[in-house]
């Protein structure tokens, strides 16, 4: 009852993997990971990942912690030069984040209120449409992924992204100034990139595959719950769907038809 063929095959597959020595094999390759993934199976089964950012609850401390957690997790170096900087998650004020919501009588406290920006993991992503090598593509769970080993660095995706969410490695990230990055690479379990490839937020695919929340969400949760809410839009009972049904939210440049999956509670 209530189990269709696809689900049955999935359950059977997981059971077989765990039962037939699969766990032992996984333990050798990645000790401890399999327990984590089995315990939190729902987080690895999203169909359309999304994030809701609760703007009134955001403050500088939370945002800085989120950015630091993200950039440490993903070996994003600090260059100290806006021309070549790489950023996955960053702060920007309302006025520049929503340039089409301009209103000259809006109060200063909203106009220059800072919020967090990242890749919107659009449902209709122009970056994936233009990439000539499929180095950026959309996964079945909606995540817009990057393959840094295939990217030729043509930067067509950067021209196509209407959100400025993509960064290019103008130089070698391993040659980023040492005084600004004393501990680089900050996470030896995550690759550093080579020069000449484009990179961006991946909704922490490496973490959600292990059943963990994205690094920024985890960092925010440590300070305050429900500031960054991450979940599955396809599930009508999910946390994000509940938050979206109870709050008024906006998205960046919705009239471009890209269907961004980061929502902002104003």
């Amino acid at each position: 009852m209530g189990v269709d063929r696809r689900q049955f095959l999935k359950i059977a597959g997981v059971a077989a993997l765990a039962g037939l020595g699969g766990k032992a094999a996984v333990d050798i390759l990645a000790p401890g990971d399999v327990e984590a993934s089995m315990k939190a199976l729902p987080l690895t089964e999203g169909k359309r990942w999304a994030m809701v950012i609760n703007m009134p609850e955001l403050n500088d401390e939370i945002m800085n912690k989120c950015i630091a957690a993200c950039h440490e997790e993903h070996n994003v170096p600090e260059f100290g030069d806006p021309k070549v900087e790489v950023k996955w998650l960053w702060k920007e004020d309302y006025h520049h984040s929503f340039p089409d919501h301009h209103n000259e009588y809006i109060d200063e406290k909203y106009e220059h209120k800072f919020l967090l920006l990242a890749c919107n993991h659009c449902s209709n992503p122009p970056c994936c449409r233009v990439c000539p090598t499929q180095a950026t593509w959309q996964r079945e769970d909606g995540i817009v992924m990057m393959d840094w080993h295939r990217c030729i660095g043509c930067r067509f995706c950067m021209a196509a992204c209407p959100y400025g969410s993509r960064s290019f490695n103008w130089g070698d990230p391993r040659k980023a100034p040492k005084d600004k990055n004393p501990d680089f690479p900050t996470n030896i379990n995550y690759p550093t990139r080579s020069k000449g490839v484009v990179e961006k937020c991946t909704f922490c695919d490496e973490r959600i595959s292990k059943g963990q929340l994205p690094a920024c969400v985890e960092a925010a949760n440590k300070l305050k719950k429900n500031v960054l809410i991450f979940g599955d839009l396809a599930d009508p009972d999910s946390n994000v769907r509940q938050v979206l049904s109870k709050n008024y939210t906006i998205r960046r440049k919705p009239d471009l038809g890209t269907e961004p999956n980061i929502f902002y509670i104003v």
Binding site: V130, P132, R150, I152, G153, R155, F156, F168, N169
Partner: peptide, 23 residues
């Protein structure tokens, strides 16, 4: 000369992508 990773230029042929105008 504009490519960030010119040694990978053959990827355009190895992974043909008809939805890309660059292809």
């Amino acid at each position: 000369v504009d490519l960030g990773n010119p040694v990978r230029i053959m990827n355009v042929i190895m992974y043909p992508t008809p939805n890309s105008i660059l292809f």
